[in-house]
């Protein structure tokens, strides 16, 4: 076989070669997860790790959606059950229940918080222009947590604002 012809068959970067490996494409990446039947997503760069559910240590007199605190390599990480916080779906803990640990840096503080979700589903590539504003009425999720909606196949995925998630509102002892 002619060597020229062989060379033409060698894939060249940037052409068809890396098709299917979509994490090198442009745009932002989001980690999609399930709350009940609904799909949500967060900026993947904030995700510290995904852990399986384990029963945390209770924090006294905290709101019911704060399940407690766990030890993540020596750091005390509070655990928030997003299903309870947003009142979505049934709160059950089984094998697919996972905790997504997010680290969010704000100007004055870096916080690491774990969020309980029903399952992790996918990694999405989303171009900024594809994100549509969320409707301003209805739903259980307060407006400030919503960054927008994006279509993924037949599903609609809600992108959550990590900064808003990070700010666990201070609570008073009931």
């Amino acid at each position: 076989m002619d060597i020229q012809m062989l060379a033409e068959e060698i894939p060249v970067e940037g052409e068809h070669s890396l098709e299917g490996i979509d994490f090198i494409t442009s745009g932002e990446q989001y980690l999609a997860f399930l709350l009940g039947e609904e799909q949500y997503a967060i900026d993947i760069l904030c995700v510290e790790e995904i852990r399986s559910w384990e029963k945390p240590t209770q924090i006294p007199n905290s709101p019911n959606y704060i399940k407690g605190a766990i030890n993540m390599r020596g750091i005390i990480v509070p655990i928030v059950d997003l299903r309870m916080k947003f009142d979505i779906g049934n709160v059950i803990y089984n094998e697919t229940t996972v905790v997504i640990v997010l680290t969010v840096e704000t100007t004055d503080k870096t916080r690491t918080i774990g969020f309980v979700v029903d399952a992790v589903s996918d990694v999405l590539n989303v171009d900024k222009s594809e994100i549509k504003p969320a409707p301003t009425f209805g739903g259980c999720v307060p407006q400030n947590y919503l960054e927008g909606l994006v279509n993924a196949g037949d599903n609609v995925v809600t992108i959550l604002n990590v900064k808003a998630l990070q700010a666990v509102e201070p609570h008073q002892v009931s």
């Binding site: 766990i70 030890n71 509070p78 201070p170």
Partner: peptide, 22 residues
């Protein structure tokens, strides 16, 4: 507890026990 959460009344902090739990 303050680093990632907030001050909790009646609790001065947390620690990690021998079995890794808090």
């Amino acid at each position: 507890l303050n680093d990632n959460y907030q001050q909790v009344e009646g609790i001065s902090g947390a620690t990690i026990l021998g079995d890794g739990s808090v």
